[in-house]
Design a protein around this nucleic acid. Structure first.
Lengths: 125, 125
DNA sequence: GCGATATTCAACAACATGGTTGAATATATG
DNA sequence: CATATATTCAACCATGTTGTTGAATATCGC
């Protein structure tokens, strides 16, 4: 069950990690699209687009209905739910981060008697 | 700017698409960890763990502070924010699961900060 | 200085990814 | 039926990912 969830998250996050695939999903959010229509905006072969769509299908984000020679694709955003939930677990960290971290740093510095610089949201790297 | 955002999303989603890396983040959510500590739960070499951490760093999800011979890692969940926001656009699709119009209304409400909890965990598809 | 500790680096291997092209399949249409 | 359309399949290639091992680097503690 946990394993299953892990695989699911792997597939969803992997599918979303490609800009072409994200654009396809965005396109699909406006309605059904044929494979050819999904491929059109990109300068890649139809076969390449077909593979992207298969990745999306594999993650459950796209479902396909074969109507004659045309393959009609439509969005199924539900698998994103799991991804969102996983991330939501961390929401507190980027929300509270500034206050909590700042407080800790200030406290540390103060304890050390180091000069206390407001230390912007941090950006160093 | 859009390109930059795309690259950022690529990196974040890719970083999250691996179960080892997700487990490391989960570990880090409990506090700072050394590279060795992050590696310990997994049956992979230290070098392999080091690479995973570099991927997380590359996505901005982990920051490292070298303290002597020890590299102290800590979570920076902020980059997930962009991922969440991207996904949030699709939330209406798995929640409402109806026609686009209704989905758009829900999205608008959400954007206004209105409490959009239709309850019902929803599972139907 | 020496040896233990913490971590990276470099080289390699296996497999995945994303792209190509050309042929194959299936279906619509005149 | 013959041809155009919609799409996949198979083979191939270049690159990226994930893992390994062994050596290198840097630091700590005696």
């Amino acid at each position: 069950m946990v394993e299953y969830m892990n695989d699911r998250l792997d597939a969803v996050f992997h599918a979303l990690s490609d800009p072409t695939r994200r654009a396809m999903l965005q396109d699909l959010s406006a309605g059904e699209r044929l494979v050819g229509e999904l491929a059109a905006p990109f300068s890649i072969s139809l076969a390449a687009a077909s593979k992207h769509i298969k990745v999306l299908e594999g993650a459950g984000l796209v479902r396909r209905e074969v109507r004659g020679r045309a393959h009609v694709c439509r969005l199924d955003a539900e698998p994103m739910h799991a991804g969102m939930e996983w991330m939501r677990h961390y929401e507190a960290f980027w929300r509270g981060r500034i206050d909590v971290l700042e407080a800790l740093l200030l406290a540390e510095d103060a304890a050390k008697g180091v000069d206390t610089q407001p230390r912007k949201t941090e950006t160093k790297r």
